[in-house]
Design a binder for these strands. Structure first.
Length: 285
DNA sequence: GCCCAGGGAATCG
DNA sequence: CGATTCCATGGG
């Protein structure tokens, strides 16, 4: 399964892993495409190449320690997606969405970066979100080989509203500062939150200005790896109405309830297949 | 409840 | 082509 060469980690026989699908399904913003089989990401303060070659996945530069400490969890490699997909595919609609992109996985991102990223994501589009996060990283993050790490809480607390505006955050500047301030003061402890149950995390995250239902659900899914979280954005709303509610307008609560009751503990994974399918096929337009 | 906030991409006329 | 719409949240 895993072998190590100098500066390389080589994975074989990994099921459900297509780097293009993983990165381009709306969950992650810090990546660059080289080719469909070669992407670069920055996460956990490191730049990493992911290269798909034949049936191998090559991670570089990396090593055994990095892999076990960071990337194993980041790529969610301990979860058996084949098994989960098999169950989800009993739903005929999901079957189609899953078969549209079998290689999707939920990335386990750093909670702080995830929180700030999804605050930025509100009322915004992916190319802009990527640009703003890049601006913030360049301005406040540490220089690393080939780019800039996402800033730590201490680094970002130096930011002012005016500076953040220059990073093109728009009206979200004050939301970012509120998040940073609450964390820095210890009013919110992102590590401690992980010990709480999902609804409790959500309640705490929503104390931050600019964090509503959608943003908190994303942080819970992508930052805390809680697969039962089902974020409803315009794409999910559209595709759910279109495919499950007879194309009728349906409120978010009803959609969330439907997901909880029909997709169960892996709703968040179902959400990602549905989002990807709707987003790339422009369903319901 | 309604409009606005900043910005660029997408879509419309 | 220019004009309008879109987007998630909170404040007025």
């Amino acid at each position: 399964m895993v072998s190590y060469e100098k500066n390389k980690v080589i994975l074989r026989n990994i099921n459900s892993f297509k780097i293009k699908e993983i990165l381009e399904c709306g969950q992650c913003f810090r990546f660059d495409r080289v080719t469909d089989c070669h992407y670069k990401i920055i996460a956990y303060g490191k730049k990493l190449n992911i290269l798909e070659e034949n049936n191998k996945i090559i991670l570089f530069p990396s090593n055994k320690n990095d892999f076990e400490k960071i990337w194993l969890t980041y790529f969610d490699l301990n979860l058996n997606y084949n098994e989960i997909k098999k169950n989800l595919k009993e739903d005929k609609v999901l079957k189609k969405a899953i078969e549209y992109a079998e290689g999707i996985r939920i990335l386990r991102q750093e909670p702080f970066e995830c929180l700030i990223s999804f605050i930025i994501s509100q009322n915004n589009r992916i190319p802009m979100i990527k640009k703003v996060i890049e601006n913030i990283s360049e301005k406040y993050g540490k220089k690393i080989e080939g780019g800039f790490a996402f800033p730590t809480v201490d680094e970002l607390k130096k930011a002012t509203v005016d500076e953040l505006r220059q990073c093109k955050t728009g009206f979200r500047d004050k939301y970012i500062l509120d998040a940073v301030t609450k964390i820095q003061r210890g009013e919110i402890d992102l590590d401690e939150l992980n010990k709480l149950d999902t609804m409790e995390i959500k309640k705490r995250l929503m104390e931050i200005k600019g964090v509503g239902t959608k943003v908190s659900d994303c942080v819970i899914l992508f930052g805390y790896g809680r697969k039962e979280s089902f974020p409803v954005d315009v794409w999910i709303k559209k595709i759910m109405e279109y495919l499950y509610f007879d194309k009728k307008a349906t409120d978010n609560k009803t959609i969330e309830k439907y997901a909880r009751e029909n997709f169960g503990v892996h709703s968040g994974i179902a959400q990602q297949y549905l989002f990807n399918y709707a987003f790339h096929e422009k369903i319901g337009k």
